[in-house]
């Protein structure tokens, strides 16, 4: 049973990594949102397995919370935003996608090397996942850097939070409930605020291209 669970968590972890790469490579905003909600679902599944394996009640709660928030609510808000802002078109990246992928691979190697000594010390049942979670954080971060439009950046930010959550559940069996609630609420509020900002940016520049923000710099 435990063996199976560990294998399952590892499987979900690798899913997560693949999804991170997929998001890095994805040009279309709508698909990006779907990938994000898929990532959320993976995290939910992994959390449930960990909760089942370690018999921790509160992990179930956070799984349900994540499911509602990150699989349904936030993607729904994002879809509405896309529709309202009418930004369905493809997004450009600063560097072309193949090079991005290569940099991403370097990052993954870096993250694994980094996590190796830490996971040896960890008492967790699934030590390998920490490296993956770290790699996902870095990849999402890179996605934020590489995109020129505001909306994909928001999604990158959310994906990073997902990866952090995954790192917390798989490596340390989750954070205390209060912290998790707080973070979940933060993310929700963050999305709202970012949405408002997106409207404001478009109002000001008639585009969501953040390169316009360079004009705000004081000389």
């Amino acid at each position: 049973m435990t063996e199976l669970s560990i294998q399952l968590v590892n499987l979900f972890a690798s899913f997560l990594l693949m999804l991170a790469f997929a998001m890095l490579a994805q040009r279309r905003v709508l698909t990006l949102i779907n990938l994000y909600s898929l990532q959320g679902l993976t995290v939910v599944a992994a959390t449930t397995v960990v909760a089942h394996m370690t018999h921790q009640e509160h992990l179930y709660y956070s799984a349900v919370l994540t499911l509602i928030l990150k699989v349904f609510l936030i993607p729904w808000i994002l879809h509405r935003l896309v529709k309202r802002l009418n930004v369905r078109w493809d997004v450009e990246t600063l560097i072309n996608i193949p090079s991005t992928m290569l940099v991403g691979i370097v990052l993954v190697v870096f993250a694994f090397n980094l996590a190796l000594p830490i996971s040896r010390l960890s008492s967790s049942v699934v030590p390998g996942t920490l490296g993956i979670a770290l790699a996902c954080v870095l990849l999402s971060f890179m996605m934020m850097i590489m995109r020129t439009k505001a909306l994909p950046q928001v999604i990158g930010f959310l994906a990073m939070e997902n990866a952090l959550f995954f790192a917390a559940t798989s490596a340390t069996y989750g954070m205390p409930m209060v912290v998790e609630l707080g973070i979940a609420l933060d993310v929700l509020v963050g999305v709202f605020i970012l949405g408002v900002f997106l409207f404001q940016i478009r109002e000001q520049f008639e585009s969501l291209d953040i390169s316009h923000l360079e004009n705000l710099k004081e000389d």
Partner: peptide, 17 residues
């Protein structure tokens, strides 16, 4: 201070690394 969000994000990214 370049005024580009990507550059700012890159700063924090490199710091993190």
């Amino acid at each position: 201070q370049q005024g580009r969000i990507s550059i700012y994000l890159l700063y924090s990214f490199i710091t993190l690394l």
